[in-house]
């Protein structure tokens, strides 16, 4: 996009009359390197310099495999639950007017504002077998606290704003004329929703889903209280990294950390590809 000056030489930036580029750019890069890139480099180098045998042994530990399954499985389930309920919430907040709508709208960001340790101890209290919701569920024979279901509940809470806040602008940007046209042509409400509305908001829904999923995989504070942290059953990946550190197994911790880092980047890549594909498809249809 930039870089070639009129004389064919290489330039970092295009000329501008505004001052301060060197200072702002230099400070940004230096600060980014010190705070973010340096610790991530330490993680990558520490994991990469480990003997291959040790890396494979760490990855093959049954406890690690169980934690991977739980972290990714629960995050996937929670993101799916959020996709459904988040869509309903975003729909209600953008399409209907009712008393308390603005309060409800402001409440969506609570998981961003509430420290995770606080939501963690609150959730385990609510969903424990003596808790407000837990005792009612216990009557139905459902145990939530200290099971994988509890992990999922915590990840649902954490993921709510990601789905709702991504869907809201997409729903608001949708041209009402499209839905009205479908209705005037005799489409039923659900037909209009499935054939007109849903395709238009699918990229936003997928983005919100993946953001919630990625956050869920790495979440620690709100999960560890309700999880119970039983080895092989309710241990999540971030907890396993902390356990390795407490055992002074720095290499093992770095290997698990790098694995999770790579998996999060793969997820972000997937969502970017999905969105590009969706945009192309919509572009062709339109």
């Amino acid at each position: 996009m930039v870089g070639r000056s009129g004389h064919g030489g290489w330039r970092l930036r295009e000329p501008s009359v505004l001052p301060g580029f060197s200072l702002a750019f230099g400070y940004t890069v230096l600060y980014l390197s010190l705070i973010v890139l340096l610790p991530m480099a330490a993680l990558v180098v520490s994991a990469a310099s480990a003997p291959l045998g040790q890396v494979l042994a760490t990855l093959a530990e049954p406890r690690v495999l169980a934690a991977l399954r739980l972290s990714f499985g629960a995050a996937l389930l929670a993101a799916s639950i959020n996709a459904v309920f988040g869509l309903i919430v975003a729909w209600v907040l953008t399409r209907y007017d009712f008393p308390g709508r603005r309060v409800l709208d402001a409440l969506i960001d609570l998981p961003f504002a509430l420290p995770t340790a606080v939501s963690g101890i609150a959730l385990v209290t609510v969903f424990a077998e003596t808790g407000l919701v837990g005792q009612w569920l216990a009557g139905l024979g459902i145990r939530v606290a200290y099971t994988w279901a509890g992990v999922t509940v915590a990840l649902v809470l954490i993921g709510i704003p990601f789905v709702v806040r991504t869907l809201q602008p997409a729903l608001m940007a949708l041209d009402p004329a499209l839905e009205e046209a479908a209705a005037s042509l005799g489409a039923r409400r659900w037909q209009t929703f499935l054939r007109v509305t849903l395709p238009a908001i699918t990229p936003a829904l997928l983005t919100g889903f993946t953001l919630a999923f990625a956050r869920g995989v790495g979440e620690y504070g709100s999960v560890i209280f309700i999880a119970g942290n039983l080895p092989m059953h309710t241990e999540i990946m971030p907890l396993l990294i902390i356990i390795k550190l407490e055992q002074f197994d720095y290499t093992g911790a770095a290997v698990l950390g790098l694995l999770m880092l790579v998996l999060s980047f793969v997820m972000l890549l997937v969502i970017n590809l999905l969105q590009a594909w969706q945009r192309r498809r919509l572009g062709l249809v339109a």
């Binding site: 996009m1 930039v2 870089g3 970092l12 930036r13 295009e14 501008s16 505004l18 580029f21 750019f25 940004t28 890069v29 980014l32 973010v36 890139l37 340096l38 610790p39 991530m40 330490a42 993680l43 520490s46 990625a214 995989v217 790495g218 979440e219 620690y220 504070g221 971030p238 990294i241 902390i242 550190l245 720095y250 911790a253 770095a254 950390g257 999770m260 880092l261 999060s264 980047f265 972000l268």
Partner: peptide, 30 residues
């Protein structure tokens, strides 16, 4: 300003949102 690598820089700035806080702490311990 317009400069080379602007998109890369913007992505790198957003990176901490995609990384588990536990991994951030781990980086500093290492």
């Amino acid at each position: 300003f317009s400069f080379r690598g602007k998109n890369v820089l913007t992505t790198l700035i957003d990176m901490p949102f995609a990384i588990s806080p536990v991994i951030a702490g781990l980086g500093y311990v290492l």
